[in-house]
Amino acid sequence: MKIDAVIFDMDGTLFQTDRILELSLDDAFERLRLNGLWEGKTPTSKYREIMGVPLPKVWETLLPCHSAEVRESVNEHFLERLIDNIQSGKGALYPHVKEVFTYLKEKQLKLFIASNGLPAYLESIVNHYGLDRWVDAAFSIEQVHSLNKSELVNMICDKYDVKRGAVVGDRLSDITAAKDNGLLAIGCRFDFSQEQELIQADAIIEDLMELVDLFLVVDDLNPSPACK
């Protein structure tokens, strides 16, 4: 049975988050500095290491000694700055996103986004770049109580009756979500990816256009049975 749906990660897979990450993070930590709640440089490199985890986990890691109230305030400001930077055109999609989406829709595949980003952030990217022309639905990790991407992907499979699909993403959470649900795991060797994570994928790409050729031979990759 051929692939009938593709579930894409957003950050570091479809959207070049790196273009707005440092700007937005600097703004958030500058606010902490002004309030006497942070000293030193913005921990951008640490954030890059954990990119792909839900935002609550991000702030627990970056601000381990701060209160839940401070983390929530920083999270809100960071989200505002991310959205402002998206809407002002400082971000960008990865090359060939729209071409690949057009090709996959012509093949009558269902397309979804499963993101660890918050709903407002995800919606701002989808709207700014008009991705809803191709994407059947976009889902935030906040739509599952566990904040677990495997559960989010399973929800998509159940809701849209995905029988044989693939998950395309750059981090281990994407690869794990695919394997936990019996889907093909396609790792993206992009900005935030890590080799020790990518080697667990069924296939690795360095450009989204490689998906075109990959899905032509996908039956030879022998993906596992469909979603649970």
Rank of each mutant, 00 (worst) to 15 (best):
E76C: 10
F78I: 11
F190L: 09
V126C: 14
E195L: 02
I199A: 00
V135L: 11
P95D: 13
K159P: 00
E76W: 01
G91Q: 06
G187F: 06
C188Q: 09
K163F: 02
V126H: 08
L147W: 03
S193I: 05
V97H: 13
L82C: 13
A120N: 10
S140G: 08
E142D: 12
W134K: 00
W134D: 02
V74S: 06
A178Y: 06
M155R: 11
S173C: 07
F192H: 08
K163P: 01
E195Y: 07
D158L: 15
S140D: 14
A178K: 01
E123G: 07
R189A: 08
G169L: 09
N181I: 08
A137T: 04
I156S: 04
I175E: 01
E106C: 03
L118H: 15
L122M: 14
G130K: 05
S67M: 09
Q108K: 01
E72M: 03
S150Y: 04
Q143G: 12
K110A: 07
L184R: 01
G130Y: 07
I199V: 14
D202V: 02
E123D: 15
I199P: 05
A201D: 07
K149A: 03
F192Y: 13
V153A: 03
L93G: 02
L109H: 05
N85D: 15
G187K: 04
A92S: 15
H77R: 05
S115A: 11
L104V: 04
P119R: 03
C157A: 09
F112S: 08
E106Q: 09
S150C: 05
V162E: 08
P119C: 08
L147T: 06
Q87E: 10
L111T: 01
D170F: 04
G117K: 12
H145T: 15
E142W: 13
S88F: 00
F78G: 08
A68C: 03
K149M: 11
M155W: 10
F139V: 12
P95T: 15
E80L: 05
V167K: 00
P119H: 11
L118C: 02
I83V: 14
E99V: 02
I186L: 00
S140P: 13
